[in-house]
Design a protein around this nucleic acid. Structure first.
Lengths: 347, 347
DNA sequence: TCGCCCCATGAGATCGATCTCATCGATCAC
DNA sequence: GTGATCGATGAGATCGATCTCATGGGGCGA
């Protein structure tokens, strides 16, 4: 591939002049500019960004690490980040960690070695994370996405998980629900889920209701009906559940319906995240929406500001309740519907 | 940030020796190695990949361009690519094009300038695409993902869309359906959708059935019931529809149910892609599955092979029918259910 | 006409690592 | 003992663009 030097030679000028032709054309005489441009076209010259990055000591690249791209929450946020970054002339290096601390460590190390200008990370638990304490000593701007901020920790952007889940809980209470449960994935693996559970308990207590023990599923995004079954029987059976994320809620609704439970007539199910798909389903998913697009955009904007040495305000972004058909008033009859064994036609 | 030179100085050796300590430690005496490693630790040395890339004329980076990350098909495939690339020591630069040709052009140009070692692209229509003909003249290995191959065109990886949709159609025919329709997004925008429609027509004709005109929705991933309504009325109303992708199918099922249609009792709905979420829904989505994980992995493996100068075999990867509750036998009664106006509790 | 300034341009250093080639001392075979 | 070999190391070039500083010529005011 042709380089600046060959272009300069062909045009009969120095490298400096050729370089100026592209960087600051107004500082080159029109005649020379023409010659250089012609030579560049002829040789199919394409500037080498790597060389520029080395010299500039800046890569115009931002490293992004998310747990997974299989969860639309992260994919949708990443999409927004990519668009925002591109608009600002930045590229993204994208990696997935699967919440695995050793992978997180390797990824961050690799990206710092690549000299990204900034880092946007989502980790399992931000507090006391080994990677993050290492990072705090580095000079590369770094921002946590979705993870809650901690005093003395890295800057973070996302919603106020505790307040958001409290609000979601109050929404159910306002509809008349009294027996409300919460369903989560492995709790230890997500600081957000823990805050959401705290928000739930808080709202319950505020209204003089007893917070129920957490119903913990073996996986983050797939519901096991067996884990929930005990809570759906007996006189104090739940009439509504809050899920820590939308995928979990969607899969739970599917399982319930397959067991001939009606949502929301027998059980109201509420999600958290507000992924696009939730609106398309029937019943549409009632969810506490995190502004994924805004979070992605704001993350990029904040990182760019940090790169320029500013420390941008990073308030929580506003969450919003999204109504949906998966939540309704509690059943008037207190008779428990029975979970029937599902008839599937899938193998 | 400390560089090799300062490490070398502190250790009292030359840059060459310091460099060897990390690249080929066996060629450095143990004593020297120790000194250099100590110095590196002390200075928190982290090798600069940009410099290495410049010198090596190779970046160990692969550029990926997908239309969108909001569609799980692309997100899931990208996830697989990221894992495979990381295992091979490569990073991904990820971009989204929104199928916009000018953005496609700019993105490819930018990535070539970044000197990625390979490119994995998904475009709207591969044939006669301006970007792609430009790319064929370049030496950077480039691979189309999901797009169908064309003689003399760029290498491509994906499933045989025509055969796959023909098979999907035969599945419905085998269940007894005779009035089968096909629902798509804007057809001109996707060469895959066109092939799928061709496969549908082929299978219909094979069985002496009349292919129906395509039911074209204004958007790729969101169904408008109004577009479908005419085909659901009258004596020859459809008993089954094939959708060009899963998101479209899922959203269609939602709309149908909201209008008190039963899936599959009143209408069988089949998807195409096989995204993970489809299995979790009720009814679970019957779909023709593209092996997204395998496609992502194979794309990376093939690109790596191409980077090494080999031209790997790129057969179609096998598609697979995924059974699901959204498809069943056609209704025995020929009386048409009526589409009722939906009662939503969402605004 | 002289001097000053500005504009266009070029020479050379620089970013940080790696690669080639030369050197030097030690070991080994004969 | 001497030449050959090998292992460890260093000097210097190199990747490709950009930045600084110097230079030379033209224009302009006095």
């Amino acid at each position: 591939m042709a380089d600046l030097l060959s272009v300069a030679k062909l045009a009969g000028v120095s490298r400096a002049t050729a370089s100026r032709t592209f960087a600051t054309p107004e500082r080159v005489s029109p005649a020379t500019r023409r010659k250089v441009e012609d030579a560049a076209t002829q040789l199919a010259f394409r500037p080498n960004k790597v060389a520029r990055q080395l010299r500039a000591r800046a890569t115009k690249m931002i490293g992004v690490m998310v747990p997974s791209l299989n969860n639309p929450v992260f994919a949708e946020q990443l999409h927004a980040m990519e668009v925002a970054a591109r608009e600002a002339g930045y590229s993204l290096i994208v990696t997935t960690s699967g919440y695995d601390p050793s992978r997180e460590q390797a990824i961050v190390e690799e990206m710092l070695s690549q000299r990204v200008d900034g880092l946007a990370l989502t980790v399992a638990v931000a507090r006391d994370s080994a990677v993050l304490t290492t990072l705090q000593r580095e000079t590369t701007p770094c921002l946590l996405v979705y993870n809650p901020p901690h005093p003395g920790g890295l800057p973070a952007i996302g919603v106020d998980n505790r307040a958001a889940m409290a609000e979601a809980t109050r929404h159910l209470i306002a509809l008349g629900h009294r027996h409300i449960g919460m369903v989560a994935g492995p709790l230890l693996q997500s600081d957000r889920a823990r805050l959401r559970y705290a928000g739930y308990r808080q709202a319950m207590r505020e209204h003089g209701l007893a917070p129920q023990p957490l119903i913990e599923m073996p996986r983050h995004t797939q519901a096991e009906l067996a884990c929930l079954a005990p809570a759906l029987a007996g006189p104090n059976r739940l009439t509504a559940v809050l899920c820590t994320n939308d995928l979990l809620a969607i899969s739970l609704i599917g399982e319930l319906q397959r067991a001939t439970f009606s949502v929301p007539d027998d059980l109201s199910v509420m999600g958290f995240d507000g992924i696009d798909l939730g609106r398309r389903l029937y019943p549409s998913l009632c969810s506490m929406e995190q502004p994924r697009i805004e979070i992605g955009r704001a993350a990029i904007a904040s990182l760019l500001a940090m790169i320029q040495g500013q420390s941008p305000p990073l308030p929580f972004l506003p969450h919003a309740l999204r109504e949906g058909e998966s939540v309704g008033a509690p059943p008037t009859s207190r008779q428990a519907p029975t979970l029937r064994s599902p008839q599937r036609n899938t193998p």
